[in-house]
Design a binder for these strands. Structure first.
Lengths: 152, 152
DNA sequence: TATTGTTATACTCTATAACTATA
DNA sequence: TATAGTTATAGAGTATAACAATA
């Protein structure tokens, strides 16, 4: 069977907010951790890209530089990231995840995955595979190509 | 092939935020319309459930009553909703979408769907069908069961 | 001049706590 | 007492505009 782009779009518009709302709620429910989704994503990106610049993070998340600066401020204030001068270009900033940041990131990831996995346990394995395949198709389509979401 | 609950969870956690970010950005980009995602969802719900109470909306969106009250305030202030006394129970409130609200809702929906559909045009029809099926599996799992997302 | 980042400001989204009014 | 809703307050997330520092 086939589906039109419009029908597919309709489904995404209906279902995606439901899923993200659960993810967000579960992250905030982890009271010992308390990472919001964008905080989690920033931390995760810097963890995999040690020494990333602010604009690297902004581009990855699809946020404007000021928004990203604020986001990073919060993570710095909580001791989850450090911000150092970039060795060769003094305009730039070099971000790294602290040991505490890694602990928190891991705890948040594990808690959220456990919660989601529990909700998916009742789904047939084949159907789970379909979900995985669908996500893998969507990922490159919606991954950030460098422009902040409000770009002209 | 089969996928574990954990792997499925990992994919959802990675991809869902990307999709929702695009939806949100596109909605805000419609400068003549300017509905955020929760505003869109509220308006959409009341449109299909004329006379809904505040708690009906809150339960559907998975928000607390104060959050919903604020959200509705904004839509009232912009003339997209009306709030009247419920005929038989004077504690309750009866929400309806105005003509302007319906116009805005329709414009926002159409714009967002068109945008998403364009992004999905390059996907194989069969793959789109897979995405639709995945969304239909996820929907009941993540649909609101009446509790606000931060419930104890 | 162009790039990197921050500050100032403002708005939406969301929660908890405390309250009012009605049932 | 229980239910429906609002107000007060606070914090995260996001944007645009204006700016400073470096290249």
């Amino acid at each position: 069977m086939a589906a039109s782009p419009e029908e597919t779009a309709r489904e995404l518009l209906e279902v995606t907010p439901l899923v993200l709302k659960e993810i967000r709620a579960e992250m905030r429910r982890q009271t010992s951790v308390e990472l919001g989704v964008p905080q989690f994503r920033s931390l995760n990106f810097v963890d995999k890209n040690q020494g990333a610049s602010l604009l690297d993070v902004a581009n990855h998340l699809g946020l404007t530089p000021p928004s990203t600066s604020r986001l990073v401020d919060g993570l710095l204030a909580r001791g989850l990231l450090t911000r150092q001068d970039h060795p060769s270009d003094r305009r730039r900033v070099s971000l790294t995840v602290t040991a505490k940041g890694q602990r928190i990131l891991e705890a948040s990831r594990k808690g959220t995955l456990t919660y989601l996995a529990a909700k998916l346990e009742g789904v047939e394995p084949n159907d789970r595979e379909s979900i995985v395949r669908a996500m893998k198709m969507l990922q490159p389509i919606f991954a950030n190509n460098g422009k902040p979401s409000g770009a002209k």
